[in-house]
């Protein structure tokens, strides 16, 4: 078989191997579970962390995702989505319901959790300056104030670095919807940054750079 890249930049031969592992896992093989866990748990943990921003909650996301996946293991359909995407879907559903529950108790994003990351950047880049870190903080806060669907798309596309095609599969929506959400998110962010006085010089600088 010629090794060619799929649109997820994954080797097809690897995919085939994974299918074998999944089949073993579906029969209850614990070694197969270990292999799948090593492949996918890290990115699910990052997703949970990005969505919920608490280490304990992110651990719960990993645990619940694998528990639910195992319960529903016969329903996994490789023709619809890759195994990783399927796990992402389960994790994302869990995050959403977790956030919904939390929302009953408190107004989200206003509450700083204990483990909320420190906002100022610890690793100053080449353009490091007070303005720069202030800009980062503004951008971060602007992202946090986006509505849930937009924030999900931004998190998946920019933080998790998933291509829009895969985000579309994951969210079970057309690719065009993903792009239009990215567009809406960009307009919101730009509006918020402009309101904070962060537009003109940065854009000029960008124009000069190109």
């Amino acid at each position: 078989m010629t090794a060619y890249k799929t649109m997820y930049n994954k080797d097809v031969t690897q995919e085939v191997d994974e299918n074998v592992v999944i089949a073993r896992w579906q029969k209850g093989d614990q070694d197969a579970f270990d292999e799948l866990y090593n492949l996918h748990a890290q990115s699910i943990y990052r997703l949970g962390w990005a969505m919920l921003q608490q280490t304990q909650a992110a651990e719960d996301v990993v645990q619940e995702t694998f528990l639910r996946a195992y319960k529903a293991r016969q329903r996994f359909d490789p023709s619809k989505a890759s195994f990783g995407t399927w796990l992402y879907q389960i994790a994302l559903n869990y995050c959403r319901s977790h956030l919904r529950k939390k929302r009953l108790l408190t107004i989200p994003w206003l509450r700083q959790t204990d483990e909320a990351p420190d906002l100022p950047d610890a690793r100053p880049g080449p353009e490091s300056s007070a303005l720069r870190s202030e800009y980062r903080r503004m951008l971060w806060e602007a992202v946090q104030s986006l509505s849930d669907p937009l924030k999900e798309v931004v998190t998946l596309h920019y933080y998790m670095e998933l291509p829009a095609v895969e985000v579309a599969v994951l969210l079970e929506c057309p690719e065009g919807t993903v792009y239009s959400r990215l567009h809406n998110a960009r307009r919101r962010l730009a509006a918020m940054l402009t309101a904070q006085g962060f537009s003109a010089p940065e854009i000029l600088e960008a124009q000069n750079a190109h």
Binding site: Q30, A41, Y45, R46, A58, E59, P117, W140, V154, Y159
Partner: peptide, 26 residues
């Protein structure tokens, strides 16, 4: 956006003990 999110949120790595916990649970 990507760098800002990754720097601000960090990219935490999975706690090693979690695997055994999930496995026990499962």
């Amino acid at each position: 956006l990507g760098p800002v999110l990754r720097v601000t949120l960090g990219q935490p790595s999975l706690p090693p003990r979690l695997q055994q916990k999930v496995k026990n649970e499962l």
